[in-house]
Design a protein around this nucleic acid. Sequence first.
DNA 1: TTTGTTTTCGGGATCGTTTTCGGTAAATGA
DNA 2: TCATTTACCGAAAACGATCCCGAAAACAAA
Lengths: 339, 339
Amino acid sequence: MKHITIKDIAKKLNVSTSSVSRAFNNKYDIKKETRDLILSTAKKMGYIPNPMAKKLTQNCSLNIGLVVPEIINGYYSEIVIALQKYLIKRGYQVLVMQSDENENQELKNVKTLINSMVDGLIIAPTVGNKNISYYLEKYNNGYPIVFLNRISENLPASKVIFNNIKWSFFATEHLILQECKKIYHLAGYKDLSVSKERIKGFKKALKKYKFSSKDYKIIETGLLAKEGMRVMENLILKNDIPDAFFCVNDMVALGAMKKLKDNGYKIPEDVAFVGFTETRVAKLVTPQLSSVKQPTFKMAKKAGELLLKRITDPNAEIETQIFNGELNLRKSSVREVSN
Amino acid sequence: MKHITIKDIAKKLNVSTSSVSRAFNNKYDIKKETRDLILSTAKKMGYIPNPMAKKLTQNCSLNIGLVVPEIINGYYSEIVIALQKYLIKRGYQVLVMQSDENENQELKNVKTLINSMVDGLIIAPTVGNKNISYYLEKYNNGYPIVFLNRISENLPASKVIFNNIKWSFFATEHLILQECKKIYHLAGYKDLSVSKERIKGFKKALKKYKFSSKDYKIIETGLLAKEGMRVMENLILKNDIPDAFFCVNDMVALGAMKKLKDNGYKIPEDVAFVGFTETRVAKLVTPQLSSVKQPTFKMAKKAGELLLKRITDPNAEIETQIFNGELNLRKSSVREVSN
DNA sequence: TTTGTTTTCGGGATCGTTTTCGGTAAATGA
DNA sequence: TCATTTACCGAAAACGATCCCGAAAACAAA
C-alpha cells in the first residue's frame, strides 16, 4: 500500500517529474497531449498529490486558525460551520480552538496555531483585553488576522462585528413601547466588549424615554443559563422584580425566565423578556423568547473573505464590516391586546 | 520576517544541522552541553520548527479527521470539544467536517480528509449505510478508523457506541411505571441505526409489560425540533394523543412538547415526555425534560484513544466500547403525588 | 603506546513536491 | 536558407526537517 508519487508516474511514462508536476498545475510549458496522458495514467495509478510536500515547497499550510470563546451556545457553532463551508471550497482547512471564556487559554490557543503555521487567524476574543496588544503586534507585522465580534469598532485591524449598540437600543425601545416602566439589564461580563456596547444601547434608549436611575438596573451576570438563574434567584429573594428584562443573550434570558416561571410569575404579563443573539431554542420555550437575530452565516463568510484578502495581500487596507440584524418579537415581550 | 530554520542555528553555532535536529528531538548522540547551547540559542533566535517539513519527513500529517452528521444540536459539539482537548495534548490537530445528515456529503467529507492525508478518521455516520462498505474496505486495508455512534454493534471495526437498547428500555419502562397506558415513540429516521436500536429498547419494555399493539405507535420523524412539531400537529388534528411520548432526542421532544403546550395540553398531567441524548436546554424549558444523558466526554476521549492505538498499530485488535448513561428524571415525566 | 569501546558529531541522502534554468527541436519570418 | 522566436521538456536545486552511516574524539583497558 505504498503511496504513488510523482516519480512513479514519471518513470512509467518516461517523462521528468517536472512534466508531471506541470501537468497537474497546468500552468505553462506543457503540451496538451502529454498533459492528458499524464493525467489519465496518474488517475489510473491512483495518484493523489502529497499535500505535505506541496505545502513545504509553497511555504503555506493551507490551514486557517479559528479561535472562539465557546462552541456550545449555538452562535459560534454556526460560525464554525459557515466558515468551514466557505474556506473548504477555497482549499483551506479550518482548525478550531476554543478558549472557554478564558484569556490565558485564548493566548495559548493563538500561539499554538501560530506555531503550527496557520496561514491566517480569525479571532473571536473572549472577555478581557490583555491579549489584544499582542495580537495587534502580530497583525502589524503582517500576520493575517481578522477579528470577529467582541472588539471595539476603532481597533486598527480588519474585523467583522455586529452593531450591538443599535440593536440593543431597538430591543430596549421595544420593551419601553410595551409600556414597561422598570427594566433591568442582565449584562454579561463587565469586561466584555459586547456587554459594554449592549449597555450603551440600553442606556441610550432609556435616555431617549427619560428613564430615571430608579427605573433601571444593570446587573453583571455572565453568559450562561445558570448565571441567569442565579441572579434571578437573588432578585426574587430581595423581591426586586421589574416589569421587564433585557438580557445579554438568550441563554441568560432562558435561565432567568425559568426561575421566574417556577416562582409563579407570568411572562410576559408580569415580566417581559428580550434576549440577544437568537438561538434556535428561543422558539421552543414557553413563552417563545423575543430576541435579536444576528446574520451568523454572512458574518462568518465575510470574516473568511477578509482573511483571504489579507493573506494574498498583507498590506491590504484595514476593512471593517459592521452587520445589522433583526429584532424578532415573540410572546415573551409582547403583551397582547385582548380582543 | 524570514523564518529561522535549523540551518540558521547550525551556521551560527558552527555545528551541523543534524546536531540541531538531535538537540530538539533529544534522543541520542548528543552531548548535554551542546544540546543546551543549541536549545538556548534557538530560543534566543526565536526558532520554531516548521511542522510542514517535519510532517513530510515523517510521512504523517498529525491531523485527525472527524466526520459528524451535524454540530448544532449540542451533542456533537461536545464530542468535537472533548476530542480536540484529548488530541491536541498528543500533538494532533482535528479537522472537523459535518455531513448535514447526508450520505453523499459524508462520503465527500471522508474522501476529502483521506486525500488531505489525515493520519486517522473518526466517523459518526449519518443516516443510511451505503458508505459503510467503503469505509470498511479502507479499514481492512489498514487505514485507521474508529466509528462513533450510529453503527451496529457487530460491525467488524473499532468503535465507540452507546447502549441505546438498554437505555431506551429504561426510559420506556419509566413511563410505564408512571402508569402511562398508551405510549408513542417519535423515532427519528427509520434508516438510522440509533433509531432502530431505540425502537428495539422501546418494544422490549412494551413487551415486558404486555402492551398490545393498540397501545403504542412508532412514528418516523427526523431529528429536529421542527419535525417534532410537525408530527405533533398532525396528531393533534387527528385527535390522536396518547398519555406519553418517548422521543429519539431532546430536540424532537422539545418541538413536540411546544406544540402540545400551545394547544392547551398539560405536561406531565395529560401527557408525559422523555427525551434522549440530553441537551443542556432540557433543564431550561417548562416543565423540565426528562432525558437519557450520554457520557459525551468519555465517549469522545475513548474514540481518540482507540484511534491513536490503531495509528500506532494498524493491526491492533478490533475494540468495541459500549457506554452506559443515566436516566435523569424531571418534571416532564414525573407525575407528582399531591401531598 | 596500542587497542578497543563508547560517545559525539558531520556529511549527505531522503521525504514529494515546485520552480528555475538551460537546452533542443519545431515553427516562424524574411 | 538562415536567423529568430516559440513550444516543450529535463536536470537539478530548492523547501526544512530527519536519520543513517561513518569518522573523529574521548575514554578505558591492556
